[in-house]
Design a protein around this nucleic acid. Structure first.
Length: 499
RNA sequence: UCCCCGGUAGCUCAGCUGGUAGAGCAGGCGGCUGUUAACCGCCGGGUCGUAGGUUCAAGUCCUACCCGGGGAGCCA
């Protein structure tokens, strides 16, 4: 072990640097030589200690500062957990007059002191500050104040909004949910498949796509006959950002049995709603030797497992959402975890809606797709719990879905949850070559473009099924956040790709 | 893309039937208190989204456009 490693705890392998702090009055002061490391004890770890005692070092940003005549209270957050750590400084603290008394919300600091039991209310521990160093000051136009901001405003300062209570909590929930998803699949023998992001076709017909091209703007590719040509383009063919990894996941499932994708997905739709993004993350498991009921079981187990883990690991963050954003967050999550999901088929759903006596904007009858208002009635009012609707009319669903024996419906399923509506959409896939070919013809799709998809049905084809989960919609449901733009760190929507 | 609502100080908003702008918070200064979105006093701060139009007079009325929000469609 070399000398640097012996020098102190948590001091990893980064080089020495000189730290220069900018004082609030723009006076620049070289404070000391200091080593920055990546593995210091976090606020979360400090707050999780069994008991007070011993010196701690806290590095983070000031959520708020309260100055009294002889004492200053600094609330330092480092993003590791919802709560900050209160540092209490009096004249005995090194840097009290020059640093502490000048501090304001948003400053980056390093504070040292003894971890003690807090005599005040609102926190278990606090730090009896012995030394505070300003690492980075803020201008007097620092936009984050210790008051409530509108989410619309925060979106205009997406470079700073992760420092707020709400967005910080959202990002932690995102992280934990993401890990919980990977854990669930790995506990159940799934292999993660990295589906391509650049694809040739809109195989699913899932709407407008983003073109990917290296051709110069204004270049209008034509062959000698004046027909469109992409011979000069990078891939020699028109290419797009993926709208789904499903078709590739099917390839994986028909070799590895259980696979899932978890990656970015792109839609160039001009959608302007609180539930749509141009770039979002989608989870798509695909399972061989599985039918629609097996898929519904998987979807329910999956959601229950992920929700339980997030509830356990993000208790503070979720308590905050329940208190300040939506007071049904905790009860909704508990409900998802505990209650068996209701399962009905499409025909029953239509009967319930017809018998509801409701005056829907879009009238319901067998054969039409369910609208948002119908889905919400079913899950929020009629059943008041998550609901899986199966076996939709074939006329409103995609070509690749399994044709049922009744010749009228396909093996599709949607998982509906209160507040959000459709959170999961999936189906058993059509694995019979002749039926699939007929379905392509019915929908006037060119079989040549799906040659490899059809070829899969010629060689060792088996019943298989899969679903897609919009990751941001899952986070919306967990946090109660009303706008999907506030559950993704850098939202991409029509007309806005800043940050 | 369609329907509805909105755009006033750094932020959150008020400004009635037209008479050239206010509050709270933030910021600066001072005071005070083991504080918890601390509190009290004083001060600075706005070409009222943009461009036209009506009028003696427009933040206020009209038109167009831009931006934002809610809902719908599309979907995840």
């Amino acid at each position: 072990m070399d000398a640097r490693r012996i020098a102190g705890r948590g001091q990893g392998s980064l080089p020495w640097q000189t730290c220069v702090a900018t004082m609030l009055g723009a006076e620049r002061v070289s404070i000391r030589e200091q080593r920055w490391t990546s593995m210091d004890e976090s606020v979360r770890e400090i707050l999780a200690r069994e008991r007070a005692g011993g010196e701690v070092i806290v590095r983070g940003w000031l959520r708020t500062v309260r100055h009294s005549k002889q004492v200053s209270f600094l609330e330092v957050t480092d993003g590791s957990c919802f709560d900050g750590l209160q540092v209490v400084c009096s004249e005995a603290c090194e840097g009290f007059e020059e640093v502490v008394r000048q501090l304001s919300t948003g400053c980056a600091v390093e504070a040292r002191g003894e971890l003690v039991d807090s005599p005040g209310k609102g926190q278990r521990f606090e730090v009896d500050g012995t030394r505070v160093v300003l690492v980075g000051g803020v201008g007097d136009d620092y936009p984050l104040q210790k008051k409530r901001h509108s989410f619309e405003f925060l979106r205009t300062i997406a470079h700073l909004r992760p420092r707020t209570n709400t967005i910080g909590a959202v990002l932690r929930v995102r992280d934990v949910a993401s890990m919980a998803i990977h854990e669930f699949f790995h506990e159940h023998g799934f292999v993660q498949l990295h589906a391509p992001i650049i694809t040739l076709s809109d195989a699913e017909g899932a709407g407008e796509m983003f073109r990917v091209s290296t051709l110069e703007p204004g270049h209008d590719p034509r062959d000698e006959n004046g027909n469109p040509s992409f011979a000069d383009d990078f891939f020699g063919a028109p290419t797009y950002l993926s709208v789904s990894g499903q078709l590739e996941a099917e390839i994986g499932a028909l070799a590895l049995s259980r696979v899932y994708t978890f990656g970015p997905t792109f839609r160039a739709e001009n959608s302007n709603t609180s539930r749509h993004l141009a770039e979002f993350w989608m989870v798509e498991p695909e399972v061989a030797f599985c039918d629609l009921q097996g898929l519904a079981d998987l979807a329910e187990d999956f959601l229950k497992s992920v929700f339980a883990k997030v509830l356990e690991r993000c208790a503070d963050d979720l308590a905050f959402f329940d208190k300040r954003i939506d007071d049904t967050v905790l009860s909704s999550m508990a409900h998802v975890i505990e209650a068996p999901f209701e399962r009905i088929d499409y025909s029953e759903a239509v009967k319930i809606l017809e018998a509801s006596g409701r005056d829907f904007e879009f009238p319901v009858h067998w054969g039409v797709d369910l609208q948002s208002e119908h889905e919400r009635y079913l899950t929020e009012e009629h059943f008041q719990k998550p609901l899986i609707v199966t076996d939709y009319p074939k006329g409103i669903k995609a070509f690749y879905m399994y044709s049922n024996d009744d010749q009228k419906t396909v093996g599709a399923m949607d998982v509906l949850v209160p507040r959000i509506g459709e959170i999961i959409g999936g189906s058993q896939r059509e694995h019979r070559e002749d039926v699939l070919t007929a379905r392509l013809a019915e929908q006037e799709l060119e079989p040549e473009r799906y040659w490899w998809y059809l070829d899969l049905r010629r060689h060792g084809s088996v019943p298989h099924a899969g679903f897609g989960l919009g990751f941001e919609r899952l986070i919306q449901f967990m946090t109660g956040m009303g706008n999907i733009r506030d559950v993704v760190p850098f939202p991409r929507v029509p007309g806005n790709a800043e940050f």
